[in-house]
Design a protein around this nucleic acid. Structure first.
Lengths: 298, 298
DNA sequence: CGATCTTACGGGATTCGTAAACATA
DNA sequence: TATGTTTACGAATCCCGTAAGATCG
């Protein structure tokens, strides 16, 4: 003998309508069916809820005391269902994204801005961390999707999209390299370089590309942060090789960037999720938006 | 496609158990039936709630966001049902009683006290008003039951029990009448009387009884309240005729009461409810207790 | 290969609507 | 008598349990 939402909805509706027939109409139900529902609820509760005869229907004192309790619960439940449906339709929910700091400070803000125009109820939880940490967060399900670097080979992750970030030479406007339209790897040979520290994904790519070209770099400084590298280049310590999209580079008026005429100077970017996990609808939608904004890797 | 409490309970149970089989056992259900319930809920919501394969079951992000919402609503609903059952069983609820002030200040407090020992959750709403007002309150359903005076003839009210209040002579200990064990109507003839004012139910009975016995009363004072009458008797203004149960009389150490040897000196008391109205179970129980405590009228 | 979820299907309980009976102002 | 609730009953639906199938670690 267990409670039934339909019976409670019937009770509330009859109480509001003050009349079985009208309540039945409002519930798209035949009137006898409604009688049965009310009687069933009365049996489960163990008390009469309405005093009724052929001419009038009135709440009993028990019904009067019960109505607000059940009505509140019913409203809560229906609100929860609406919320649930909003999640299901992608009209609401939380996008939990782990991503590289470069991405977080370049394309991401505008992507979020544009997405929220379309889905105002979407919430975002952004973790901007280094590539290895992105993978860890997605694997541990502290994030649902990740924008990570490298040719991530991780069996527990699905790759949803591959993109890339070209690396460019960053130098002062007045530097000799600034006069060239594009730069060969050999141009960097023996030139003082400011590179981000070993362990960063950018550095890994640069090291590999220079080695492949048999260049012997003259590493002047190895800061942790791009912002520091930019400041060092600005003051003439050397030139740097950084992602083209990095905000730190683009925002600096005294510097110019030059493409490197070498396909290995490219940092792969992967959009990943955990294998076997279903994404919330809102997150799927945001993934679509990101894919459109990130150039497909050839 | 509407929400079902059972499906929600299934969702919460699986989330807690982390496993369909154990959840099914806990719900006293076969495991395939549980699969169906979860799938149905997922369809109504429009989103996958668990990522599951043959070895593991885990909430999706959507499920994780939904769980607290639905769980809270479910708990509320089940609490409301428990409350409802408590009403039905008479273990809880409000007794709404309108009664004569005499009753409210004599037998009632002890009745309530004793009843609450048995039903601690019972609440009381007492309106102590004059007899005509008792009837009005019950008729307007501002009270569920009434203790009223007179031979209430009111077609809209059902009489649940008839009782009576004997009227007694009240006089100072030192008064001549105090020496008699019982008093005849004729003893009151020509004696200075302190009677409550016309319009009170007691006065109506006294007037009728004296008239029937062809006594010509010497009315010294006509106060509104019994308390005042008692004070007047105390100071020797006369003797009074008051209900035997009245607290005002019994509490006064300097006075004595003497029965009147005449069956017409009796105030009828009726326990009434509105016709066609079902009483809450707790109120029914209290009615039973009152009936036991109120002598049945012959 | 074994534990566990999913699919398929038959039977039983639930619940609906129609029609007729019933009750009260 | 008219309006509105209750009862009765057949039909459609829902829902469960059993058994067989699929899947992943």
């Amino acid at each position: 003998m267990d409670l039934n939402l339909r019976d409670i909805r019937a009770f509330v509706t009859v109480a509001q309508a003050g009349n079985f027939t009208r309540a039945a109409t409002r519930l798209h139900l035949s009137q006898p069916a409604l009688t049965v529902q009310i009687r069933r609820l009365e049996e489960t509760v163990g008390a009469r809820l309405f005093d009724r005869n052929s001419r009038s229907v009135a709440l009993t004192q028990t019904g009067r005391e019960l109505l607000p309790l059940l009505q509140r619960s019913l409203n809560d439940m229906e609100q929860a269902l609406r919320d649930a449906r909003a999640f299901g339709e992608g009209a609401s929910g939380t996008v939990r994204l782990a991503c590289l700091p470069t991405f977080a400070s370049s394309a991401l803000p505008e992507l979020i801005q544009a997405f929220r125009k379309r889905v105002p109820q979407a919430r975002f939880q952004i973790r901007d961390v280094v590539a290895s940490m992105v993978n860890t967060l997605v694997r541990n399900e502290e994030a649902d999707i990740g924008v990570t670097g490298g040719n991530t080979v991780d069996a527990t992750l699905d790759v949803l999209h591959m993109s890339e970030d070209r690396l460019v030479v960053v130098c002062p406007k007045t530097h000799a390299l600034a006069k060239k339209r594009s730069i060969k790897v050999s141009d960097l040979d023996g030139m003082p370089l400011v590179l981000t520290a070993s362990g960063t994904s950018v550095r890994a790519v640069v090291d590999a590309a220079l080695a492949a070209a048999r260049c012997t770099p003259d590493i002047a400084c190895e800061p942790m942060y791009m912002m520091t590298a930019v400041a060092m280049v600005r003051s003439g310590l050397g030139v740097s090789v950084l992602p083209a999209t990095a905000r730190e580079v683009r925002a600096e008026p005294g510097l110019v960037t030059r493409p490197i005429d070498d396909p290995s100077f490219v940092r792969p970017i992967a959009l990943v999720k955990k294998r076997g996990r279903t994404l919330p609808r809102v997150t799927e939608e945001f993934v679509n938006a990101m894919v459109l904004a990130m150039p497909e890797r050839k």
